[in-house]
Computed example of a mutant assay.
Amino acid sequence: MRRYTNRFINEHNLISGRVLSAIVVLPLSLTIAACSQPNATTADSKPATEPTTATQKTALVEQPQAGIIPVSAHSDTQSTILRNVSATVYKDANCGCCKEWVGHAEDNGLSAAVHDVADVSLFKDRYGVPQQMRSCHTTVTTDGFVFEGHVPAKYMAQFLKNPPSDAIGLAVPGMPVGSPGMEYQDKFMPYKVMQLNKDGSTAIYATIDSPQQQI
Rank of each mutant, 00 (worst) to 15 (best):
N84D: 13
N84Q: 02
V85P: 04
V85W: 10
V85C: 08
A87M: 12
T88E: 12
T88H: 15
V89P: 01
K91V: 02
D92W: 07
D92L: 13
A93C: 07
A93Q: 06
A93N: 14
A93V: 09
A93D: 10
N94Y: 14
N94E: 08
N94R: 08
N94M: 05
C95G: 03
C95W: 05
G96Y: 11
C97E: 05
C97S: 10
C97N: 05
C97R: 05
K99W: 06
E100R: 15
E100M: 14
E100V: 12
W101E: 01
W101H: 11
V102T: 13
V102P: 03
G103D: 01
H104E: 07
H104L: 12
A105Y: 06
E106H: 01
E106Y: 04
E106G: 05
D107A: 12
D107M: 08
N108C: 02
N108V: 03
G109N: 00
G109T: 01
G109F: 00
S111V: 01
A112E: 00
A112L: 02
V114K: 04
H115Y: 06
H115C: 06
H115D: 09
D116N: 04
V117I: 02
V117A: 00
A118L: 09
A118R: 05
D119Y: 04
D119E: 12
V120Q: 03
V120G: 02
V120Y: 01
L122S: 09
F123I: 02
F123E: 03
F123H: 03
F123Y: 12
K124R: 11
D125M: 02
R126S: 07
R126D: 05
Y127G: 07
G128K: 08
G128T: 09
V129L: 07
V129F: 06
P130T: 03
Q131W: 06
Q132C: 00
Q132I: 03
M133G: 06
M133E: 11
R134N: 09
R134T: 13
S135L: 10
C136N: 07
T138A: 12
T138R: 10
T139C: 07
T139R: 07
V140P: 08
T142F: 11
T142I: 09
T142H: 13
D143Q: 15
F145H: 15
V146K: 09
F147D: 11
F147P: 13
E148M: 14
H150V: 12
H150L: 10
V151W: 12
V151K: 13
P152R: 14
P152M: 15
P152V: 15
A153S: 15
